[in-house]
C-alpha cells in the first residue's frame, strides 16, 4: 500500500525497498539477540523487546531526511539503527559499558540520544518526548529551517494530559511535527479497552486540530507512505500530523514479563501479520528480492550483531572516578 499514490507503483526505488528490508531484518536480529543474551544471564538490568514494531520504527524513520530530528522510544530500535546508531554502540549501552551511547549513564535504549545523528534520547516518562520534539519543531520554525521533528509514543502515553497538551500546542503553532502513536494494544498489562472508551487514538489528534490518520502498523509500506506524506506536509508549512499505527506488542512489557495476561489467540492473530515476513512476501511478489537475497541479508545482519556483541562484552566498564562527570554542560 502506498498512500501517496494508492493506485500506482511503490514510490520507493527497488534499492530503497531493499534497504528498508535490511533495516527491518537488522532490527529483528539485534532484538532477538538481546533477548537471548538476557535469557543467558549476560544482560544488565531490564530490557525491552520491540518485536512486531519493525514496520513502524523503520517505515517512519525512513521518511525523514538527514537534517530532521527524531525522538524515538524503547520500541523503536529500527529508527535508531537507520539513523546511524550502530548495533555496537547500542549494545554497549545496554550492557552499561563506557563505549555505549550514554557511557553507562542510562539503561537499555533510554537516553540513547546523539545530536550528531539528530536523535533525542528519551526518559521513562515517555510522553515527555512529545513536547521536546515539538520544541525542536518550533526551533526550526523560528529559524526558518526546512526541518521536521518526529516522535513516537504508545497507546499508554496517549492517555496523559501531556499528549493532549502537546497536540494542542503543535496545532496552534502549525509546527512541523509528526507524532507516531504506536497502538500496540497494551500498556504493560492493561489492555486498551481498560485505558480508553474510544476505538481509535487518532480521534484525539483530530480533537486537537491535528491532521490524523490510522494505518496498519505492520505494513511497512503503509507506514512509510503515511509518514512521507506527513513529513512533506510538515516541511511545506502544513502543520503537524498524528499517525496512529495499529500493531501488537508480541512479547511482554519488558524482558521479565511473560505477558500471560494477553489472550493467546490475540498473539496468534498478530503473528500471522508479522511485519517482516509480510514485507519479504511483498518484495518477492514484486520481484524486488528473493529468498536467496533474504538469506544473504540475514547472514549479514547476524554477523553484524555477533560483532556488536563481542564489542560490547569486551568493552570496558565506565571508570567509577567519572561518576560525577557530565551532570552539567560546560
Amino acid at each position: 500500500m502506498n498512500l501517496r499514490d494508492p493506485a500506482g507503483e511503490d514510490p520507493l526505488s527497488e534499492a530503497e525497498r531493499r534497504q528498508i528490508h535490511y533495516w527491518m531484518r537488522l532490527t529483528r536480529t539485534l532484538d532477538d539477540r538481546i533477548i537471548s543474551l538476557w535469557k543467558q544471564g549476560r544482560g544488565l538490568g531490564g530490557t525491552f523487546s520491540q518485536r512486531g514494531h519493525e514496520a513502524i520504527s523503520v517505515g517512519a524513520g525512513f521518511a525523514l531526511g538527514p537534517d530532521d530530528v527524531v525522538a524515538p522510544m524503547h520500541r523503536d530500535l529500527g529508527c535508531y539503527l537507520l539513523r546511524g546508531m550502530t548495533p555496537a554502540r547500542l549494545l554497549a549501552s545496554q550492557l552499561g559499558r563506557a563505549t555505549g551511547v550514554n557511557r553507562g549513564r542510562d539503561a537499555n535504549l533510554h537516553g540513547c540520544g546523539d545530536l550528531d545523528l539528530n536523535i533525542i534520547g528519551f526518559v521513562s516518562h515517555l510522553p515527555q518526548s512529545m513536547p521536546v520534539a515539538l520544541g525542536a519543531a518550533m526551533a526550526f520554525q523560528y529559524r526558518e529551517e526546512p526541518r521536521v521533528a518526529m516522535t513516537f509514543v504508545g497507546d499508554g502515553s496517549s492517555n496523559t494530559g501531556l499528549f493532549h497538551e502537546t497536540l494542542n500546542l503543535a496545532a496552534v503553532h502549525e509546527a512541523p511535527l509528526v507524532v507516531i502513536v504506536e497502538n500496540n494494544q497494551y500498556a504493560y498489562s492493561t489492555p486498551i479497552s481498560q485505558q480508553m472508551a474510544i476505538e481509535d487514538i487518532s480521534q484525539r489528534g483530530t480533537a486537537q486540530g491535528v491532521t490524523s490518520e490510522i494505518i496498519d502498523g505492520n505494513d511497512v509500506g503503509a507506514v512509510h507512505g503515511a509518514a512521507t506524506v506527513a513529513v512533506e506536509r510538515a516541511r511545506s508549512g502544513g502543520g503537524p500530523t498524528l499517525i496512529e499505527a495499529k500493531t501488537m506488542r508480541m512479547l511482554g512489557h519488558a524482558i521479565h514479563d511473560g505477558a500471560e495476561y494477553v489472550p493467546a489467540d490475540l498473539i496468534d492473530k498478530w503473528r500471522k501479520l508479522d511485519p517482516l515476513e509480510r514485507y519479504e512476501q511483498t518484495l518477492r511478489d514484486d520481484g524486488v528480492s528473493d529468498d536467496r537475497a533474504f538469506g544473504a541479508v540475514a547472514a549479514r545482519c547476524k554477523a553484524e550483531v555477533a560483532s556488536a556483541v563481542r564489542f560490547a562484552e569486551e568493552s570496558e566498564w565506565p571508570d567509577p572516578q567519572t561518576v560525577a562527570e557530565g551532570v552539567y554542560a560546560p
Binding site: 533525542i120 512529545m130 513536547p131 521536546v132 515539538l134 520544541g135 525542536a136 526551533a139 523560528y142 500546542l169
Partner: peptide, 26 residues
C-alpha cells in the same frame, strides 16, 4: 511576536517544548 510567545495554560508541555528548543540551540 516571534520572540515573545504566549502559551496556553500548560506548563508541562511548554516547558517541555523549551527543552526541545534548547536542545536545538535556542
Amino acid at each position: 511576536d516571534r520572540r515573545v510567545l504566549n502559551m496556553p495554560m500548560t506548563e508541562l508541555s511548554f516547558i517541555g517544548a523549551a527543552n526541545g528548543m534548547a536542545l536545538m540551540g535556542l
